[in-house]
Design a protein around this nucleic acid. Structure first.
Lengths: 268, 268
DNA sequence: TTTATATGTTTGCTATAGAACGAATTCGTA
DNA sequence: TACGAATTCGTTCTATAGCAAACATATAAA
């Protein structure tokens, strides 16, 4: 037996018994007591034990107060926008009806929608967002179907060729899409190509398209353009937007849902 | 014999025995001790083993001295079996080589393997386990592909028709399967039909099948039978199993890797 | 050819582990 | 409390095995 093995064994034994005797170890490991003493000496240097006459006892670790961590979920619900996301989700949840088959593309607002889904029954959720799928499946009356694909650690969502293929297999009543930009001229846009591809894949396979967008993202254009605005049936946002937009959207036949809290908060 | 062959043999030998001596290997492989030392040096750099005077022992990520505190993730690592799961994962991780394309079926052991994957490079992980996919994608040098399907809230994994279809699109080097029962007569079995179906789907599409099984699940048969034992190339478990099994497995040409915590079990 | 890689041999040097023995300690008993 | 026996300890010494480094050889690649 190698020294390192012997020491490993002594460590384990000590952790179990909290104390060891030289004699006992010597017999157990079939080496001389001198050797055991030398081993214990090493372990004492490591700070693992305190030697005593005839053996050693386990040293109590001074715990470096690490009890603070243990964050639960990775979505930054501490983000400054968290409330706004939830406001939008609060509106959007009412658009969903029992028995609906919906797609929730990956994103924070859709995560909040998924958390509220236990209010509904017999809803089938198609999503590429891992956290959305977990929330949506938490209620036994609903069902979540996750799209396969390459996992993006940052967004906790699947993308890529497999995702696009999987999407083709489904047809949904409603798709909820979070966008990073809405603009009269450029339409709707998102900031990553993966998300753009995903949305483009699902659009043809959905009856009703519902755009979710922070009020602050109106009049903005993100890097990847998806389509013109008029593909959408509904837009949900958190703040009142100016009248020109309202008119424009109503001309296109798009329903605009706005969080009523917007005014109270006094935000623009 | 090429160096690369020799090193592969040493690896396997080490995984089986948990320790090797320079002298022993030198005789066994008919090369000088210097050569063996140089090989061990390489393997130590790879993080596979720890060299010691006279040989080397298999490296364990789970240091017994700090096994107490700092539990991180939501899977019940507080479960009494947690350490055993991790022991098995500690062995299994050494079976994975850089550049491998592997399947990790859903389960706790595979979750532990996924957490250790940051030691490896360019590994592609196919999985139906959401948590596994997140862990496996956390390192930028690796890649995770999640199988689509119906999400099961309890196991945080995907199952069903879509999962089976998605699996057909891939072929992997190695598949790691956690089973709930191993028996000489009945072969390998699991406790849910979903998992049984999943495993049956991937088996034809994998070159090497590696079974992960708690020692306590030997001689047991879970509800859903999967196949005979001889489809597996390797079995990894956490405790010594009796000699009749060892003989039987070696007759079938199955390599048995065992993690032994010698003292705990009192056998030296 | 040169160059690089893999392996073996030789040569001190070092690590390991046991023996010996005086010093320190524990402990039972007076 | 005191004292002696028994145990345990630390130190030194020794034999053995294992080690790294330098050098040598062979084989393959450029």
């Amino acid at each position: 037996m190698f020294a390192i093995e012997r020491i490993r064994i002594i460590k384990n034994y000590l952790l179990e018994k909290n104390k060891v005797s030289v004699n006992e170890l010597s017999k157990m490991l079939d080496v001389s007591e001198v050797t055991i003493r030398r081993d214990l000496e090493k372990l004492e240097e490591e700070g693992m034990l305190i030697r005593t006459h005839g053996g050693a006892v386990l040293k109590k670790q001074t715990n470096p107060s690490n009890s603070n961590n243990m964050k639960t979920k990775s979505t930054d619900s501490t983000s400054p926008y968290s409330d706004l996301y939830e406001e939008i989700a609060d509106i959007a949840i009412h658009i969903i009806e029992n028995g609906d088959v919906i797609m929730l593309a990956n994103g924070i607002i859709n995560y909040h929608i998924a958390k509220k889904l236990d209010q509904k029954k017999n809803v089938t959720v198609l999503t590429n967002d891992l956290l959305v799928s977990i929330e949506a499946s938490s209620s036994s009356s609903n069902k979540a179907v996750l799209l396969g694909g390459d996992v993006d650690y940052e967004t906790k969502a699947t993308f890529g060729a497999l995702t696009a293929m999987d999407i083709q297999k489904f047809y949904v009543n409603k798709v909820f899409i979070e966008v990073d930009g809405i603009d009269v001229d450029t339409g709707i846009s998102v900031s990553t190509i993966d998300k753009a591809n995903l949305i483009n894949s699902i659009l043809p396979n959905s009856k009703e398209k519902i755009i979710l967008c922070l009020g602050s993202n109106f009049n903005k254009t993100a890097f990847y353009n998806i389509s013109r605005l008029d593909i959408a049936e509904k837009i949900v946002t958190n703040s009142n937007i100016d009248n020109s937009y309202k008119e424009y959207l109503s001309q296109l036949g798009i329903q605009l849902y706005t969080s009523i809290n917007a005014v109270e908060r006094g935000n623009i």
